[in-house]
């Protein structure tokens, strides 16, 4: 899995923003992750504990907000969560769909002390 690279990227963004705000400590990190992005929370936390050591982000809590994948069928307007076996509309079999959610992959906010 590529969570190490992703976690490194999170740390870089966090430290850059914290130093701009002249923080002395980072206590919480709020992440928004859609299920289409295939990121596993536990592995991010695992790497986080290792790579944040000896930085002002050491000990910070990672708060994950998971967003489930939701599709809307453009033909019958059924809104559904793909079940892992098929991503076709379960109601009418259409392949014309719109992604409503699940692609999110960003850092929303951090809590700091200064």
């Amino acid at each position: 899995m590529h969570e190490l690279a992703v976690t490194q990227s999170i740390l870089d963004i966090v430290l850059q923003n914290a130093s701009q705000a002249q923080a002395t400590k980072i206590t919480n990190i709020y992440l928004v992750i859609g299920d289409l992005s295939s990121i596993v929370d536990d592995s991010v936390q695992f790497y986080w504990d290792i790579i944040s050591k000896d930085s002002i982000a050491e000990g910070a809590q990672l708060q994950f907000r998971r967003i489930t994948t939701q599709f809307e069928c453009l033909d019958c307007h059924e809104v559904y969560q793909p079940d892992g076996d098929s991503i076709i509309c379960p109601h009418c079999g259409s392949t014309r769909i719109k992604v409503l959610s699940g692609e999110e992959f960003y850092l929303e906010a951090i809590d700091i002390e200064k």
Binding site: A5, V6, S9, I10, D12, I13, N17, A18, A21, A23, T27, L31, F105, Y106, L107, E108, A109, I110, D111, I112, E113, K114
Partner: peptide
């Protein structure tokens, strides 16, 4: 003194690679 503060960021995690 410890001042607590929330900073809103909203930054794509893959920015560096992109």
């Amino acid at each position: 003194m410890n001042e607590q503060q929330k900073i809103t960021i909203v930054q794509n995690i893959m920015n560096a690679n992109d």
